[in-house]
Computed example of a mutant assay.
Amino acid sequence: MPSPSILVVEDDPPLRTLLARNLRQYGYTVRTAVSGAEMGVALKAGPVDLIVLDIMLPGTNGIELLRSLRQQSEVPVIFISARGSETDRVLGLELGADDYLVKPFSTRELVARIGAVLRRHARDGNDEIGKAGVITFDGWTLSHQSRELRSPDGALVDLTTAEFDLLTVFVQNARRAIGRERLIEMSRDRIGDASDRSVDVMVSRLRRKLSSEGADAPITTIRGVGYMLSSEVSPV
Rank of each mutant, 00 (worst) to 15 (best):
S3D: 04
S3Q: 05
P4D: 04
V9Q: 10
V9S: 10
V9H: 10
E10Y: 05
D12K: 07
P13E: 12
A20V: 00
R21L: 12
N22Q: 15
N22A: 14
N22V: 06
R24M: 14
Q25A: 13
G27F: 02
G27I: 01
V30Q: 03
A33E: 10
V34E: 15
V34D: 14
A37F: 10
M39V: 09
G40Y: 00
V41L: 14
L43D: 11
G46N: 12
L50A: 06
L50S: 05
I51R: 09
V52K: 08
V52L: 15
V52G: 08
L53G: 10
I55N: 04
L57G: 13
G62D: 10
E64K: 14
L66R: 07
R67H: 13
S68M: 11
S73G: 04
S73N: 10
E74H: 12
V75K: 05
I78S: 10
I78V: 15
F79L: 00
F79I: 04
A82R: 07
G84W: 02
G84D: 06
G84F: 05
T87I: 12
T87A: 15
T87E: 15
D88P: 01
V90D: 01
V90I: 13
L91Y: 03
G92D: 01
E94F: 06
G96I: 05
L101P: 01
L101E: 06
V102E: 07
V102Y: 04
P104N: 03
F105S: 06
T107W: 02
L110P: 01
V111F: 02
R113M: 10
G115E: 12
L118I: 12
R119Q: 15
R119Y: 09
R120W: 05
H121I: 00
G125P: 01
D127P: 00
G130C: 09
G130K: 13
K131Y: 07
G133S: 09
V134T: 14
T136K: 07
S143D: 15
S143E: 09
S143G: 07
S146L: 11
P152Y: 01
P152H: 01
D153C: 00
L156W: 00
T160K: 08
E163C: 06
F164P: 03
F164I: 03
D165Q: 14
L167S: 05
T168Q: 11
V169L: 10
E181K: 15
L183K: 04
M186A: 14
M186S: 12
D189W: 02
R197E: 13
S198W: 04
V199Y: 02
V199W: 03
D200E: 15
M202P: 00
S204W: 01
S204T: 11
S204Q: 12
R205D: 05
L206N: 02
L210E: 07
S211D: 07
S212N: 06
G214A: 09
A215Q: 14
A215Y: 06
I222V: 15
G224L: 03
G226E: 05
Y227H: 11
